[in-house]
């Protein structure tokens, strides 16, 4: 049964580690779809007006590349590409864009005249040179990752054998690089506090001291809008126990603009309904401000 399991698994993973000079149908499909998305994403990265859209396009390109890595047999690298590049690096970009708000659209006027067209020309020629080099290079038949991966029983153990034996020094140096860069970022982004940070206790005590001098200072959370009233919108004020409107429950901006919604009175029950039982007063607060037996 384990042989059947292996057969099923290898059948399902037959996309990996392609053959000698041409790949199977699945990988071809993946390549063409992924290549289109990558190139479109790269164009979106360059030509987007908003920086966040560029970041998203780049994240899409990175996910396509991760799929390519997995299709070529580098399973661990593909997953690490998503975790590190898409999940951490692009997230860092997005955070910086959102927090610092570097969002102003660039002006289209050039500082160096004709730079744009010169850049396009140079990039196209450069791309042509690269493609020409690859076309002329003597690239032999593709050996595929089957044997290399099976050398130690899987992609991850084989990578580990190489990483911790032959490239160990580079591994240690790269860890030093990471620590240094983390420290460098902390130093650059640090803001030295000149006064001690006020704690929650101090802020609350301060609020009460100000209240003792000026009774109009609000020390409690303000009432939510629309509580016990008919609607829950932010411009519907809450009602106080005597039926009047609580001014504090609506945002100050809305109050200043006069956009506080009025209250429609509840329908009055018919006389034969009101006569049912003594204590059956109209439920809840009625909005027209009638002051009769509220909360009986």
């Amino acid at each position: 049964m384990s042989a059947a399991l292996l057969a099923t698994q290898s059948a399902a993973t037959h996309l990996l580690a392609g053959p000698v000079t041409s790949t199977g149908g699945g990988e071809t499909f993946l390549f063409w779809v992924g290549a289109s998305i990558s190139v479109l994403g790269a164009l979106g990265l360059i030509f987007s007006k908003k920086a966040v859209h560029s970041a998203l396009c780049l994240a899409g390109v990175m996910i396509c590349l991760a799929l390519f890595y997995m299709a070529q047999g580098a399973v661990f690298l593909g997953v690490v590409q998503i975790v590190v590049y898409t999940g951490a690096i692009m997230m860092l970009f997005l955070f910086v864009l959102m927090l610092i708000g570097i969002d102003a659209p660039e002006s289209l006027t050039e500082t160096i005249r004709g730079q744009r067209w010169a850049a396009v020309l140079v990039a196209v020629l450069f791309g042509a040179i690269l493609i020409g080099v690859f076309a002329h290079a003597k690239l032999g038949p593709f050996a595929g990752m089957d044997q290399a991966n099976a050398a130690a029983g899987g992609n991850v153990p084989s990578l580990a054998h190489l990483l911790f034996a032959r490239y160990f020094w580079a591994f240690e140096v790269s860890s030093a690089v990471l620590i240094t860069s983390a420290l460098g970022a902390m130093v650059l982004a640090h803001r030295e506090r000149v006064t001690a940070r006020r704690t929650q206790k101090e802020l609350a005590a301060d609020r009460f001291k100000r209240y003792s001098k000026d009774p109009s200072v609000i020390v409690t959370p303000m009432p939510n809008p629309g509580v016990y009233a008919q609607h829950n919108a932010v411009d519907t004020p809450a009602l106080l126990p005597d039926g009047s409107i609580a001014q504090l429950s609506v945002n100050a901006t809305l109050r200043a603009q006069g956009e506080v919604r009025g209250i429609t009175p509840l329908p009055v029950p018919l006389p034969h309904e009101a006569a049912d039982g003594d204590g059956a007063s109209p439920a809840g607060a009625n909005g027209s401000g009638r002051h009769e037996e509220v909360g009986a």
């Binding site: 000079t21 190139v39 790269a42 990265l45 990039a123 196209v124």
Partner: peptide, 26 residues
């Protein structure tokens, strides 16, 4: 499809990236 196509895609993406570095100002 020859797996060489990945190299061509890599070349295209690289030159697009270089174009972006030269064009954008942000």
């Amino acid at each position: 499809m020859n797996p060489d196509s990945y190299l061509y895609l890599s070349a295209i993406l690289f030159s697009l990236g270089a174009l972006g570095v030269l064009i954008r100002r942000d």
